[in-house]
């Protein structure tokens, strides 16, 4: 009752909530950002003297470019593989009639209930047997399979929305099944595929558990795995750690700010349609 729509209380309350949200979302990152310029990082307040040692160290000694390259390589390949594989299954399940069709959707849905950490030991062992433990291929392989349920539902619902006439016309012109899929369906479904791909890429770019579990040699690590190292190995180089956090999160934040509407679409697609 007190919060009558146009009352001062109502307006004040709204802005209070918004300020709280902005504070908890941004302050931790800002704190690290400001601290990274202090000669002794940490504490409240602004730096007395601005130093750039940390950034110099991570670009020269730590060779952070290599970690970015690993992350880009691993996240990009796993996203392409994952989206391609899921799109093929989703297309068949959205368009073809066959026995056990329901099983395909059930199969993808069931993966939602299988936590990757609870099954991580068999996966770890399997990769050991395939000699893929400390290798980027092994990580790409695992990442291709993570989160396939949401990808499947996003892509499938997009395929279901494409009019069947498109394919029928293509078939009339003598286009085979495979050619129809790649030449007609994929180009039409590009927005849906992109929505799914952004989400898969984001998850794989940020994935920490398997990256830290599997990648032991430094030259193969992704950015999150590198950050994990800082809890022990580099903890003496505080400037380096603070700068590394900033360098690790800034690209994501910048891209998000530039393409926020695209991201918003990707982040909502799974739950709204699935």
């Amino acid at each position: 009752m007190e919060k009558k729509s146009s009352g001062i209380m109502g307006g004040f309350f709204k802005y209070f909530v918004m300020i709280v949200v902005l504070f908890i979302s941004l302050y931790p990152i800002l704190w690290v950002f400001i601290s990274s310029f202090k000669s002794v990082p940490g504490g409240l307040g602004l730096p007395e003297e601005w130093v750039f040692d940390g950034y110099v160290t991570i670009f020269t000694k730590l060779n952070i470019g290599q970690y970015f390259l690993n992350s880009i390589l691993i996240a990009t390949s796993s996203t392409i593989i994952s989206v391609a594989i899921v799109a093929m299954s989703a297309y068949v399940s959205a368009r073809m009639e066959f026995k056990g069709k329901g099983l395909i959707t059930a199969m993808f849905a069931v993966t939602l209930f299988i936590p990757s950490i609870s099954i991580s030991f068999p996966i770890y062992r399997l990769l050991g047997e395939l000699n893929l433990k400390d290798s980027r291929i092994g990580v790409i392989f695992i990442y291709s399979g993570l989160g396939i349920a949401v990808t499947y539902f996003i892509i499938r619902s997009y395929f279901l929305g494409i009019p069947k006439e498109m394919e029928e016309a293509a078939r009339m012109d003598g286009c085979g099944y495979t050619a129809t899929f790649f030449r007609i369906i994929v180009p039409i479904a590009k927005p849906g595929l992109a929505t799914a791909a952004i989400m898969v890429f984001l998850n794989n770019w940020n994935e920490f558990y398997f990256a830290s579990l599997l990648l032991k040699s430094k030259e193969k690590m992704t950015i999150p795995a590198l950050l994990g190292q800082f809890t022990t190995a580099y903890s003496k180089n505080l400037n380096g750690m603070f700068s590394a956090i900033i360098v690790a999160v800034v690209p994501t934040i910048v891209i998000f700010c530039l393409l926020s509407e695209t991201f918003v679409k990707s982040l909502t697609a799974g739950a709204v349609k699935g």
């Binding site: 979302s25 940020n206 920490f208 994990g228 690790a248 999160v249 998000f256």
Partner: peptide
């Protein structure tokens, strides 16, 4: 959304 899209490692 930012805390949700940056790496939890960070």
């Amino acid at each position: 959304i930012i805390p949700n899209i940056i790496s939890t490692a960070a």
